[in-house]
């Protein structure tokens, strides 16, 4: 086996889903490849590697980013949220729950990028209109669903978030 010492590598530290992670990567390593192959968190998917499809979207310090358009070394010190970080243990994130209820996924390959994108949108705008829901997902490609159920999932996710906070308030009041 030949080794790869010829290519200079750089140590990086990131927080991924709240867990500090380190990796030793070449400068050209994409953040998507670093997450998937160095950190072995394969929930983030790569659909085009030119920033168009949105499948690889992760949250970098809370903002949706195409991880195929960012070098891993540029993410040094960032807080990254991937699809693996959305659920709270066994409890699905409202967006995940909504996708399940609304049949918002078929093959599931593009889904992680939709989930991270929508979760960020709902953080900013917890009560989107239908038009805003369409806008929220208008930068992500899906080849299976025809999007109708994805838009429904955005609206349902907002509803689930409200339902859960109502329950939480109700329980807190007891």
């Amino acid at each position: 086996m030949t080794d790869q010492q010829a290519e200079q590598t750089f140590p990086i530290t990131l927080s991924v889903n709240g867990v500090p992670r380190t990796a030793e990567v070449p400068a050209r390593r994409l953040l998507s490849d670093c997450l998937r192959h160095d950190l072995r968190m394969t929930g983030t998917h790569v659909g085009c590697e030119h920033g168009v499809c949105g499948a690889c979207t992760v949250l970098v310090d809370g903002a949706p980013m195409r991880s195929c358009l960012m070098f891993a070394v540029s993410a040094q010190g960032s807080e990254i949220t991937t699809v693996e970080g959305l659920a709270d243990g066994e409890t699905l994130h409202p967006v995940q729950q909504a996708f399940k209820e609304c049949h918002g996924l078929q093959c599931g390959f593009c889904t992680p990028g939709f989930l991270t994108t929508i979760s960020a949108v709902l953080d900013d705008n917890p009560e989107p209109t239908r038009e805003e829901a369409v806008e929220a997902v208008s930068g992500n490609l899906c080849r299976c669903t025809g999007y109708q159920n994805i838009v429904a999932s955005v609206l349902r996710a907002a509803e689930i978030t409200r339902e859960r906070s109502a329950v939480a308030i109700d329980e807190a009041g007891r």
């Binding site: 394969t42 998917h45 699809v83 959305l86 659920a87 209820e101 996924l105």
Partner: peptide
Amino acid sequence: QRTEDVRLLKGNGRYLDD
């Protein structure tokens, strides 16, 4: 509702490059 969904939604799908 689909039985495959939770796995896929949590990022636990296993596609070829995974």
